[in-house]
Simulated assay, not measured.
Amino acid sequence: MSEVALPQTAAELPEPRFSPEELADLLGQHRPTAQQSEIISSPLAPRLVVAGAGSGKTATMADRVVWLVANGWVRPDEVLGVTFTRKAAGELSARIRAQLARLARLAQRGAEGIAAAAGDQQAIDPTVSTYHSFANTVVQDHGLRLGIERDAVLLGPAQSFQLAARVVEAYDGGTWDGFPAKSSLIAAVLQLASECAEHLREPGDVAAWLEEESARLQALPRAVGEEGSRPVPRRS
């Protein structure tokens, strides 16, 4: 979960009006655990929270957003939540919006202490999506700055597979004994493309490194017993 909402410096933020436990009672929810409460009410600063399956991550992230809004630290439309899968994004979005709607109703009824932004109908829509979906939105909105047309779209899994399949089918280079099956090659192309994007590397750079690494490995002495091998000195 990422919070993109710093219109004020930390020193200018108002004192919290509610603790996580008080806000849970106000909204009629289960109170968070001590560890969850610490996360929910933590300062507006980068932080990493490590939690396992079934530990209440989605609920804690939603409670964190609602706590920030209720205490006047951020507006709902200043919140960005990103996850890896559409299912997770949908669950997080539904939970956040449901709790913000409940908070807005309380604010509109005049509940004491709730920040005015919580009841602002023009600012109750946070952005929650997958990383790829949000990136696609950024490209469409700002791609022209980099010479990318607004109608450009990110390839989905099916489109990526089709493109990788065409690359493999068009390959006319040499082969070797034990050449992988077509499906294995397609999976390898997709994995290579993903890793290059993840680590900001060009395929040519990866190919050059592989050639160097292959040459280095070929120059190593063979193990005793292999054809054409020679004894490998042992370290004392």
Rank of each mutant, 00 (worst) to 15 (best):
L103W: 02
A118M: 03
I148R: 06
Q162F: 10
L106M: 09
S42V: 02
S37V: 04
Q191G: 08
V206E: 05
G178Q: 07
A117C: 11
P20W: 04
G147C: 07
T60G: 02
S19H: 10
A89D: 01
R102E: 11
G225W: 03
W209G: 10
G174T: 12
I124V: 14
R102V: 03
E3S: 12
V167H: 03
T85L: 13
H30M: 13
V4H: 04
P233L: 13
L27E: 04
G147M: 00
H30D: 14
E213H: 12
P32D: 02
D77Y: 01
D120Q: 02
E211C: 12
K182M: 10
Q162I: 05
E38Y: 09
A219F: 11
P46M: 12
S2A: 14
R95Y: 04
S214I: 12
V167D: 04
S236D: 15
E78G: 02
V206K: 01
I114E: 00
V79Q: 01
V167E: 09
S41T: 11
R47H: 12
L106C: 10
F161D: 04
L163Q: 11
Q99W: 11
A59F: 13
H199I: 11
G54M: 06
A11L: 14
H132D: 15
V167T: 06
S194D: 09
Q8W: 08
A62D: 01
A223W: 02
G81E: 06
G119T: 05
V168H: 01
G204P: 05
W67K: 03
V69F: 01
A219P: 02
E21W: 13
D120L: 01
Q159L: 09
T9I: 04
A59P: 00
H142F: 11
V82S: 04
A107V: 12
L100K: 02
G156N: 09
V168L: 05
L103H: 03
A45C: 04
T175A: 12
D25Q: 11
L154E: 06
D63N: 15
P157N: 04
K87A: 15
L92I: 08
G225Q: 05
R222A: 07
A117R: 02
L44T: 03
D25K: 13
L220P: 00
P14L: 01
G225K: 03
R47C: 14
H30E: 13
I40M: 00
G143D: 06
G56Q: 05
A53L: 05
R86G: 08
G113S: 07
D63A: 12
V4N: 11
S19P: 01
T9V: 07
L27M: 08
A101E: 12
A165I: 03
D125L: 11
R109V: 06
W73V: 01
V4T: 15
T130M: 04
Q122R: 15
Q121A: 15
A98R: 12
L192H: 04
A24Y: 00
T58W: 07
V189L: 07
S184Q: 15
G204F: 06
G228D: 05
D125S: 14
L185C: 03
A158N: 10
T175S: 07
A208I: 12
V168A: 08
I114V: 15
V82I: 14
P126R: 01
H199W: 06
E227M: 13
A170L: 11
Q29A: 08
A118E: 01
R201T: 11
A34P: 07
D63I: 01
A117T: 13
S183P: 06
E91A: 09
P203M: 10
E91G: 06
S214E: 08
